[in-house]
């Protein structure tokens, strides 16, 4: 009798531990420890109403060819109505509706800061509404010589304003681009990406790229997972933009609230110290 009791206590203790731990640590991941050293960042600490630091960022202006290749509707400007510091340590990119047309902003670090491998992250509060398409992404620096998609594209974060609880991480390269990228989605349970800041990141080494939301790994792509060439062995530059309408997102409706603001707390880039 004694013996039986003892065993059942042990079993009970084990099962309660199991229940307890599975409740508490549902989404814990065991990832390799890696050491990161900050090599570049923009904290967007400039005064209210100023434009992004021109030593870090370029503007891309206008409507692009065929709506930047995606049938996007907006015209990009460098007007402080569309892009500015909020004076509280954030960059704001604002999509505005003017009658039947839209303005917004798109900035890149092309030629100013380019990065091969490492961890690239940004803390962002997203806009919302049907047809709103914000992105934090990278393009291969050799885009002018080999063109897209041979240069490669790393979409650290893309999002459709009509699905404010879901973000997407994708790779576009030769043989897997446009409507056929390597991609995966991450959804919040009982939450939205536009009501608070979230951390979007990739960790990129020679053999793979990991995609994170709030330090949760939701997609790992190895070099042999892609159907075409692995082109992520050269420097890439960073982009931040808010598009309105386009092939990925569909089009805004009369119900889409405007203006819509993407608020970026910081962009930081790290090298791995081995």
């Amino acid at each position: 009798m004694n013996k039986i009791t003892k065993i059942s206590i042990v079993v009970f203790a084990l099962s309660s531990m199991f229940v307890f731990s599975s409740c508490e640590r549902d989404d814990e991941q065991n990832l390799d420890e890696r050491n990161w050293q900050l090599v570049w960042s923009d904290e967007f600490d400039e005064s209210k109403g100023s434009l992004p630091d021109s030593t870090n960022w370029n503007f891309e202006l206008g409507n692009g060819d065929n709506g930047w290749g995606n049938a996007e509707l907006q015209s990009y400007t460098n007007d402080t109505a569309n892009i500015r510091m909020d004076g509280n340590g954030h960059l704001q990119i604002v999509a505005i509706k003017n009658g039947t047309s839209y303005t917004s902003a798109r900035i890149t670090t092309k030629g100013k800061f380019e990065q091969k491998l490492g961890r690239i992250e940004a803390s962002i509060k997203l806009p919302y509404g049907p047809g709103i398409w914000p992105a934090f992404w990278m393009l291969g620096s050799n885009i002018d010589s080999v063109s897209w998609p041979a240069c490669g594209e790393i979409d650290i974060m893309e999002y459709r304003g009509q699905q404010p609880d879901i973000v997407h991480g994708s790779l576009h390269g030769p043989g897997y681009s446009g409507g056929n990228p390597v991609t995966k989605s991450y959804g919040l349970t009982q939450g939205r990406f536009d009501t608070d800041f979230h951390l979007f990141a990739v960790e990129w080494d020679e053999e793979k790229i990991d995609f994170f939301v709030d330090d949760y790994l939701f997609q790992r792509v190895y070099s042999d997972d892609v159907s075409g060439d692995w082109v992520y062995n050269q420097p890439f530059y960073l982009l931040l933009n808010v598009a309105v309408g386009g092939n990925f997102v569909g089009f805004p409706t009369s119900d889409t609230p405007f203006p819509q603001t993407m608020t970026v707390d910081y962009v930081r880039v790290y090298n791995e110290i081995r």
């Binding site: 919302y128 509404g129 049907p130 709103i132 304003g161 009509q162 699905q163 404010p164 609880d165 939205r192 409706t253 119900d255 889409t256 609230p257």
Partner: peptide
């Protein structure tokens, strides 16, 4: 209210 599809 802003609904789960981004519409007010």
């Amino acid at each position: 209210f802003n609904m789960p599809n981004g519409i007010d």
